[in-house]
Design a protein around this nucleic acid. Structure first.
Lengths: 208, 208
DNA sequence: AGTTTTTTCGAATTACGAATAGAAAATATC
DNA sequence: GATATTTTCTATTCGTAATTCGAAAAAACT
């Protein structure tokens, strides 16, 4: 059994923690590509360079492992967006901030984090109880987006006649769906983001 | 073994065909809610009001059954949109047609067809070979959308500086993602569609 | 170097659900 | 109404992959 020699929040990372992370990384990678049903423990073990049985030294069950990948996925995306917003100049408009959030979310998803893309993919695949847990974790991230939209609307920067909840879900949907189709050969994610933001902000219709 | 007393395209539907459809309906319903991994044959059988073993009289395997649900899902969505476009007045603009297609796709997805919503959900969940097959089936539907966008652009009705492939995927993503979040209590799908179309066409930003 | 603790292994077990097959029931045919 | 055909049921088999467990190996400690 593992000893808990560390106090919460310790910074040094021992061998055991590194192995644990290696397993999580492997799981995120495989899950991202094969989904929940398609991912077997032996697949994860192979990538992590160990035997399937050994995984149980670190995680109580397959579900527990997957759940931690998903939790990490949401939290890391939240962090990435939050950090990006934090480093914006104070004079940035609410719309600027909204656009930055969209760009960051998309880039993070498709070319930075296996955890985040795996999480998106898994949301619709895991059993009901895990899903509940997951939705709870996502609530904080959802609130951030809700706030971004509300601020922009209250400042008169975006139109006020739309159901912002629906708009938010549609935006997230467009961004999240990219994990299903985006491949590097479709071009750099920055370009996708640019065009998407152009559409969302100014519309497809030509100005008269 | 079933006799093939019917010639292709016969209109009368015998008892056997009705049972077959009952199973497909049940499968679509369950798959829509539980996904690929979460759906067991006994679940489908229960809804179809029969024993799991009996399914094999109609389908060679679980995969075959799921594949037929998915094929039906894409084809029916294609039909719904095509029909809607066909009954539009000749003087309708290309943008009008594009909007009609978006609305139809969304409504069909969230409140008309378990087949269509199950299909969307399953795309990222099924094994690689089924996925290939599925993508092939979807190609026709994809072409329809590509054409709608291209026509609108060529007619000068939408801006010409955007990557239409990416835009198409983003639009489909926003619409498709609704199967993950939309519930009747979020309000009628018509309203969601209206707001989404407003955003896509005219943008969130207020006009100066 | 010897001892204890942590980590890994790999074979065995278990659980679950798809698939099969032969009997029974229902339905159609003559 | 008897016979043939189709459909369904039930119990069983089969395969796969998660999980367990005791032993071996590695690492840490004295």
């Amino acid at each position: 059994m593992r000893s808990d020699r560390k106090t919460a929040g310790a910074k040094a990372e021992g061998k055991s923690d590194k192995t644990r992370r290696r397993i999580l990384d492997a799981a995120a990678l495989v899950l991202r590509h094969k989904g929940f049903a398609g991912t077997r423990l032996v697949d994860i073990a192979k990538v992590a360079d160990m035997q399937a049985g050994s995984l149980y030294y670190y995680f109580g069950s397959r579900e527990e492992l997957v759940a931690e990948v998903m939790r990490t996925g949401v939290c890391s995306a939240f962090d990435a967006v939050t950090r990006r917003l934090a480093e914006m100049p104070a004079e940035a408009s609410h719309v600027d901030r909204l656009c930055a959030a969209m760009e960051t979310h998309l880039l993070f998803l498709v070319e930075q984090s296996d955890y985040a893309s795996a999480t998106i993919k898994l949301i619709g695949q895991v059993p009901k109880d895990m899903q509940q847990q997951q939705i709870a974790t996502e609530r904080t991230y959802g609130k951030l987006w809700k706030q971004l939209l509300r601020d922009a609307r209250d400042a008169g920067e975006i139109r006020a006649d739309l159901n912002l909840s629906a708009i938010r879900m549609m935006i997230m949907g467009a961004l999240n769906w990219s994990v299903e189709w985006h491949r590097p050969e479709n071009g750099p994610a920055e370009h996708i983001a640019r065009d998407f933001i152009a559409m969302v902000m100014h519309g497809l219709a030509v100005r008269r």
